[in-house]
Amino acid sequence: MPEPPPSPAAHPAVDAHHHLWRPERGYAWLDDPELARIRRPFTPDDLCAEIAGAGVRHTVLVEGGRCHADEVPEFLGYAADTEPIAGVVAWADVADPDLPAILAGYRRLRGGELLVGVRAQVQGEPDPDYLDRPAVRRGLAAVADAGLVFDLVVRADQLPAAARAARALPELSFVLDHLGKPRIHAGAAGLVGWRDDLAALAANANVTAKLSGLVTEAGPDWTVAALRPFVAAAVDAFGASRLMFGSDWPVCLLVADYRGVRDGLVAALPPLSAAERDEIFAATAVRTYGLAV
């Protein structure tokens, strides 16, 4: 893949989506034999080494599918002790009736001021309409009341329900992770349906999206050309001011290294102004998550 041109930015670059984990803590999904490459601890020191060579200054640490509240103090502690980690998106059961008290408890933890959002593993729910459930809607309202962002980690078939939730809760800021996991590996067939559903979600002004996880959805033989139509659809739907770069490291290591992910996105973007690139690679994340950088 040819070396793309650098992306000029007025702000130091921000990675709005990465993970840290210790598999022995109970990340059952990492037991899949195909994930052996990333079935090892990834620490704040590992993160700092990766971003140093990619021009990234700040990051957002996102829960990684362990789905247990006892990791929240750990992650907030990482953020308190690691200068580049400017915010944490923690796990929470959005259908838990005690969610308001749980979120207040998170805030009281060391590093609690760096809690910027929560997410639930909605992609693991078989029901494509999970976000329509009354208990879930009440939980989303509690997230808004707490002044936090809700990250949407959803499958492509869950995008319509996400759009309905965003329309019903205009006071809540939603962030779509991984563009809703389109079937990039399927080429043009992967655009069918997904592109319209993405546009319907983007019609809600309280939704932003991450250009993250795309190389993984494209597969081990990914190319910049394969990414381009999906990235273009996102730019058309959201505009640069509602898009942000996320590495999805270390999941990305299944198909690409950290620098390769960032450079691949730079090359896949349509022609943009320097100000628009600054939005995607820094300003949108700072504004959406309220990062103190």
Rank of each mutant, 00 (worst) to 15 (best):
P4K: 03
P5S: 10
P6V: 06
S7C: 13
P8D: 04
P8Q: 03
H11V: 00
H11M: 02
P12Q: 04
R25H: 12
R25A: 10
A28G: 09
D31N: 15
L35M: 12
F42Q: 08
T43W: 05
C48K: 12
A54R: 14
A54Q: 13
R66I: 15
H68K: 03
D70T: 15
V72L: 05
P73C: 02
F75N: 09
F75I: 02
A79E: 09
T82I: 06
I85D: 00
I85W: 01
V89T: 12
V89Q: 03
D96N: 14
D96G: 09
P100L: 01
P100F: 03
A101D: 15
L103I: 15
R108V: 00
L109K: 01
R119M: 04
R119Y: 05
R119H: 09
R137F: 01
R138T: 12
G139Y: 03
A141L: 05
A142V: 12
V143E: 04
G147F: 07
L148V: 08
F150Q: 11
D151I: 10
V154P: 14
R155Q: 15
Q158V: 03
L159Q: 13
P160F: 05
A161H: 12
R167Q: 14
L176H: 09
L176F: 12
D177A: 13
K181N: 13
R183V: 06
R183L: 08
H185E: 14
A186K: 09
A186I: 11
A186V: 11
A189G: 11
V192R: 15
V192A: 14
W194K: 11
A200D: 15
A205C: 02
N206M: 07
L211I: 13
L211P: 14
G219E: 09
D221Q: 09
T223E: 01
A226Y: 06
A232T: 15
A234M: 06
A237W: 08
F238P: 00
F238A: 04
S241Q: 13
R242E: 08
D257S: 06
G260H: 13
G264Y: 06
G264F: 07
V266M: 08
V266Y: 09
A267E: 13
A268V: 08
E279C: 03
I280Y: 11
V286P: 04
L291T: 14
L291G: 10
A292Y: 01
V293H: 00
